[in-house]
Amino acid sequence: MSWFSSLNTVVIDFDQSHLFFPRIILTLIAVLGLVIVVTNARPVLRAIRSGRYQFFVKNADFFRLIATLALIPGYFWMMDFIGSVLPNMGLGFLLASIPFVFLMSMLYCHEKTRRNVTIIVANALLAPTFVWVVLYHFFLVSMP
C-alpha cells in the first residue's frame, strides 16, 4: 500500500498555496479546451467558411452598437473625472448622468416626435436628480 500513500500524500507549501488551485483549473481548462477543439473544429470551421456562422446578427445596427460602446465608457469616465474635481458630493454622478441619459435615449429613440423628445428631456433631468436626492442625500449611498 505504499504506492497508495505516496500518491495520496499532498504537501502544500503555504507560501506557494495561492498557485495550487489556479493551476488545477488552468490544466482542466486546457484539457477540456483541447477536447472541444478536436471534436468541434471541423464543423465550426465549415460553418464559418460557408458563412453560416456570423459574429454579428443579421442586419446589425452598427451605428447604435458602436455609439453604445462609446457612450457607456464615456459616461463612466466623465463620472469619475467630475467626481475627482468635486469630490464627495455625488456631483460626478449627477452631472454625468444627465447628458448620458439624454444622449442614450436620443440614440435609441426611433421616432423623435415632439412628445417623445419632451419625455426624453424630462426623464434625463428628473431621473438622475431624483436618484441623487433620494439615494445620496437621504440614504447616504456613496456616489462618485
Partner: peptide, 17 residues
Amino acid sequence: FVLYPIIVMMCAVGAYA
C-alpha cells in the same frame, strides 16, 4: 429608449456603492 439609460445609470450607482 427611456428604460435602458436608466438601467445603465442604476447599475452604475449600484456597482459604485
